[in-house]
Amino acid sequence: MPVSNIIQIQDIHKSFGKHKALDNVNIKIKKGSIFGLLGPNGAGKTTLIRIINQIIEQDKGTVKIHGELLEKKHVYKIGYLPEERGLYKKMKVGEQAVYLGQLKGLNNKEAKQRVKYWLEKFNIESWWNKRIEDLSKGMAQKVQFITTILHQPELLILDEPFSGLDPANSELIKNEILQLKKEKTTIILSTHNMNSVEEICDEASIINKSKKILDGKIHDLKDKYTNNKWTIVYIGNKMSFTNAVWGGWKLENHDSINEKTHVATIELLDQLKISDFIKGIVNHVEIQEVKKNSPSMQDVFLNVVNNG
């Protein structure tokens, strides 16, 4: 088994009563990558995350971390930010973060130092003695993020880390995630926010109705679901444009920027190549710009979830 895989999930099955939550799921996650775990609500993502966190046990299959079967000692290597955030409301920020750090194997002194370091880094050192119930939701999220990464986990599991954050804090957390990646932390990002997947994930898998239906590098996924759609900006009139090439393409959309300049979205059908299409229109209109429309992760997601 290649050493570069930090997590290897094999043939995982899990049922709750009659409901199948996970059905034969296989996933490999490379060390130091950011891995997107995607899927609609109720697809089984949280169940999978809970299995990796040893909160619940799978019915069948194995999870290996660094090639070893998952066991108790591995909880110290994992950091987990659940989708439903929570801290002890009556406990003070500092005390609580130190406690959670200690539960993840830090000693008291280490934990205190690191909490201090992070509070200073986020410019919130004055919060040490504040109770969680006195913080705003966004503030509490920051504290929660700190408690998740305090013990410098090798594997960080973030379930919707950006939900409920304002753009500034979102950016802050995003940069921290990228920084952690540089420091060789592997990150599993479970989210519905496809923009963030495109922005920061290296690989992703999509789970739907308890089955994994797709996985791979983000780039490859997009290529796989690519369509032959192009955006062409030209000067001229619409009739000349549409009549220049006969057959083999379809006009998807047509907009005018001003009286003479237009934007057309076309889809090439059959064997028609974009170069042939351009050759056909180049004498009728003046071409300003030609750009391939690559699919977004959103498109990929919708495509596989709705059609798969």
């Binding site: 966190n53 040893q54 909160i55 909880v75 994992i78 987990y80 659940p82 439903e84 955030r85 929570g86 801290l87 002890y88 409301k89 959670l100 539960l103 993840k104 408690t147």
Partner: peptide, 17 residues
């Protein structure tokens, strides 16, 4: 009940059984 309603329970049981 406090741990359950504040949802910290999931974090704690990801560290201890």
């Amino acid at each position: 009940i406090e741990e359950k309603t504040s949802r910290i329970i999931e974090i704690i049981i990801s560290s201890v059984s």
